[in-house]
Every structure is written in structure tokens, then in C-alpha cells.
């Protein structure tokens, strides 16, 4: 766990006034606020950092503790205990301990450094610390499936906050695609509607096929002699092997489309994309004496 220089995070001097801190924080918040930076994890991280720095530096008690221990934060609690014990020996009733509690409903993530020094999260964003919500919080979940899993509709049961949610994932869902399950987020406040559950799919592809939407792509090797003379090759598709005719004089890099042999189209039952094959002519590396002599004979014919 590393020490975080909150002054550096906000770009202010150690002598900065509350007003300077507020200003610096607002400047960063306008830059990194999640509502202004959709799907930007880096901005989200920066925002959380700025938020945490503000949480500490804008609170006189927290700032005092942070300034007092600084780099020695790991010993802060020991110092606090020793200080309390000294104070109790001298004067009874002087209570110098701090107590912090996590605010329920706060969706702010605080660093381990913050947690270890201050115990729990604060109120989160907002000048007055008042964050009223009416609609319940949206939940985000990730679900990992393999490419073959999503070739057919998938019935899954998810457990979110103790509740089981049954859902059928349509075939053909894409990697990174997010679906919304309405009303399965956090409960609303003061009669407000519940939030939604967003599930983002991570589709792991262990196959030899590359996927772009419903189309699949694959490179297949064609033996040199077959590419020159023509013939038949066997190709593996997602649903089994197919035989293909290779025309005589097939060039390296030739593309062939197998209609309807691709991936199911999302929410279009019975419709499939195409499979695109790229032929890679395989040049033999190890020749027998006989094969070598045949190639040499070919060479003598001035074959171009």
C-alpha cells in the first residue's frame, strides 16, 4: 500500500486554503466526472482520486490527521493510541479519538490508504455532502462466456444481492455488449423506482475463428500442388467439416465466402452471418530427393 500525496493529487500547496482546495477539486471534477467521461476507466480512477483527496483535505479533522502523520501514516493509529493514553493519564475525560463510519448508500471507492488511515468511506461527491437519490442505484455486472456458449441461446441464473435472476441470453451476443435488466438494481428511495442491472458480456474466443459481428474469419492452408492444379480440401466450420473445391491456379490470399456458415445474428432467430476463408498456400519446406528432382525439372521448363 502506497502513501498518497493528496496535495499533489489536487495540485495545491500544503498551505492551500479551504477555498483553494475547493477550487482545485472542482476543476478536476469537471475534467474527470464520470458523467462527462462515459466508459473511460482512467478518468474514473482520476475522479475517485480527486474525490478522495477532497474528502480528506476539505475536512479539517481529516486534514489535520493527514498533515500530522503524512508519510508515517502506517503508525498513525499507534501514535493516536499513545496520545490518548498520555492524555488520559494527565486529564480525565479528554477524548481525542476519531470515529468514522461508512455512509450507507455511498458508491464511492476509497483507496486502501484512505481506509487504513480514516477507517471508512465518506459521503462521497457533492459540495454539501448531501447526495439524494430517488431512483435506485444501477448495478453493473460482468459475465464471461465462451464463443461456443453464445452460439445458442443461453439460460443463466444470476445471483445479484441475494436475489436470483433468471435470464435467457440471446444467441449471437457480442463481446463487450451490455444488456439492461430493468428494475433489478438497487431499491428506490421515497417510492422511487428501482435501478437497473447492466450486464456486460465478455466473450472468450478459444476457437480458430475470428469474429466480427455475425461474420467469422479463418485462414486455411492449401497445399501448393492443390493450389496449382486444383482439387478438394476439407475445412472445419463451427458446425462441422465441409468439403471445398479449390480452383486450379489459386493465389495465396484468395478469399472465399461460405454463406450462412458464420455466427447467429443477434436477436434474429434462424439467421446467420457468413464464414470468410483466406487461403494460405503452404510452401513445402522438406522435400524428398524425388520431389526435389521434380521441382528442378519444373524449373528447367522455365515455368513462371
Amino acid at each position: 500500500m502506497e502513501f498518497i500525496d493528496y496535495y499533489k493529487v489536487l495540485g495545491v500547496d500544503k498551505k492551500a486554503s479551504t477555498e483553494d482546495i475547493k477550487k482545485a477539486y472542482r476543476k478536476l471534477a469537471r475534467k474527470y466526472h464520470p458523467d462527462l467521461n462515459p466508459n473511460d476507466k482512467e478518468a474514473e480512477m482520476n475522479f475517485k482520486r480527486a474525490n478522495e483527496a477532497n474528502e480528506v483535505l476539505s475536512d479539517p479533522e481529516k486534514r489535520k490527521k493527514y498533515d500530522e502523520y503524512g508519510q508515517d501514516w502506517q503508525h498513525a493509529e499507534e501514535f493516536e493510541r499513545a496520545k490518548r493514553s498520555r492524555a488520559q493519564q494527565g486529564r480525565q475525560g479528554d477524548r481525542s479519538g476519531y470515529t468514522y463510519s461508512r455512509t450507507s448508500g455511498s458508491d464511492q471507492d476509497f483507496s486502501d490508504f484512505f481506509e487504513s488511515m480514516f477507517g471508512g468511506g465518506g459521503q462521497g461527491f457533492g459540495a454539501g455532502g448531501q447526495r439524494v437519490r430517488f431512483r435506485g442505484q444501477d448495478y453493473n455486472a460482468q459475465l464471461q462466456l465462451s464463443l461456443m456458449d453464445v452460439y445458442t441461446p443461453q439460460k443463466q441464473t444470476l445471483t445479484v444481492n441475494g436475489k436470483n435472476i433468471r435470464l435467457t441470453i440471446p444467441a449471437g451476443i457480442e463481446d463487450g455488449q451490455t444488456i439492461k435488466i430493468k428494475g433489478h438494481g438497487g431499491p428506490g428511495i421515497e417510492g422511487g423506482p428501482a435501478g437497473d442491472l447492466y450486464i456486460t458480456f465478455s466473450i472468450v474466443n478459444h476457437t480458430a475463428f475470428k469474429r466480427d459481428g455475425a461474420n467469422l474469419y479463418k485462414t486455411v492452408e492449401v497445399p501448393l500442388v492443390k493450389a496449382v492444379l486444383g482439387g478438394e480440401i476439407q475445412v472445419e466450420t463451427l458446425t462441422g467439416k465441409v468439403k471445398l473445391k479449390v480452383a486450379a491456379g489459386t493465389d495465396n490470399g484468395t478469399k472465399v465466402k461460405l454463406k450462412g456458415k458464420g455466427f447467429p445474428k443477434y436477436k434474429k432467430e434462424g439467421q446467420f452471418g457468413d464464414l470468410y476463408l483466406t487461403y494460405q498456400v503452404k510452401i513445402p519446406k522438406q522435400l524428398t530427393q524425388e520431389q526435389r528432382e521434380l521441382f528442378e525439372s519444373l524449373e528447367k521448363t522455365n515455368l513462371v
Partner: peptide, 20 residues
Amino acid sequence: PIEELPLMEKMVRLHNELEI
């Protein structure tokens, strides 16, 4: 309409939290 609520809340956040 209730469907507008997430957008409304986003706009309120921009207004209240960022003073826009």
C-alpha cells in the same frame, strides 16, 4: 415518463455537483 429518470438524474448531478 419514468424512462427519462436516469437522464434527469444525470443532468441534476451535472448541475449540482459541477455547477453547470
